[in-house]
């Protein structure tokens, strides 16, 4: 929560607060400023003005780029807060934008987080940690970018209350495995609950989706391309159904890039 900093001789007390944050997006404002949308650990989603960050002489412009995890200090404004100090915690922007596959996989993660944490200033600690971990995995090239994206989307939706089921029937709870998938019902459906026209993904695709949801990377990493593509399609449909809006950046995901080399230097 904001605390008052200042005292005798100052120009009055300024309500300041400090938090860890992930930069979700930036928009140009005026000549040299930006509006930054931050997902903070304690204060939820916050929008703030970063003054002069588009100038080459800016002290913290490079730290307020999308994908960066930062320690930020803001002072409370009437409509938007103002960023006053920024320190880097996770310098993920550089490794992500140096690889087009990582960049296009990371963008839907930021867009989804922005949508899932809809209200500003409502704490979303789990969403913060989930996105922070996903960006670290993406930048560190721990797994294929599309797998990290799909896993993040499934888990972020689960945290938001839309957890899918990939084994038991999502409607009646009958133990699986089942053969049909219904986005509107919430995942795998048994033969009795199956709505007409439900797709029937491969059993390996169901196994991959379950692995992505639980973080079983030993299973996910060895899945073949056909099942990854099928799982990605289902995850995209599931995410867009429950977000009630199209994730615009999903159509730009580049799935042609081979699995890049592991980057141990980015491990926390």
């Amino acid at each position: 929560m904001p605390t008052r900093v200042g005292g005798a001789g100052d120009n009055g007390a300024v309500p300041l607060y400090r938090d860890d944050a992930i930069v979700l997006r930036t928009q140009k404002l005026g000549e040299a400023d930006r509006i930054v949308t931050l997902l903070t650990r304690e204060n939820g989603k916050v929008r703030g003005v970063a003054k002069g960050v588009r100038r080459t002489s800016s002290r913290f412009g490079a730290r307020l780029e999308p994908f960066m995890v930062v320690d930020v200090q803001l002072h409370v404004g009437r409509s938007l807060d103002t960023v006053t100090q920024v320190e880097t915690i996770g310098p993920y922007a550089r490794p992500i934008c140096d690889d087009y596959g990582l960049y296009t996989a990371g963008a839907p993660m930021l867009e989804a987080a922005d949508r899932l944490v809809d209200a500003e200033r409502e704490p979303a600690v789990q969403q913060f940690w989930l996105l922070s971990g996903a960006l670290r995995a993406l930048a560190g090239r721990d797994h294929a970018p599309s797998l990290v994206l799909d896993s993040y989307l499934l888990r972020a939706l689960s945290v938001a209350g839309w957890a899918p089921s990939f084994t038991d029937c999502a409607r009646c709870g009958a133990p699986g495995p089942h053969h049909s998938f219904s986005v509107a019902t919430g995942g795998a459906v048994c033969a009795r609950c199956r709505p007409p026209g439900s797709p029937a993904p491969a059993p390996e695709t169901f196994a991959l989706l379950a692995a992505l949801l639980t973080g079983d990377w030993a299973v996910a990493d060895v899945a073949d391309q056909r099942h990854r593509r099928e799982a990605s399609g289902l995850v995209a449909a599931y995410a867009q159904y429950y977000l009630e809006r199209t994730l615009r950046s999903l159509r730009h995901v580049d799935r042609t890039v081979p699995v890049p080399a592991h980057r141990p230097d980015l491990e926390a």
Partner: peptide
């Protein structure tokens, strides 16, 4: 510039 969030590919 390419900006997927702004739907620029």
């Amino acid at each position: 510039a390419i900006n997927p969030i702004e739907n620029v590919g």
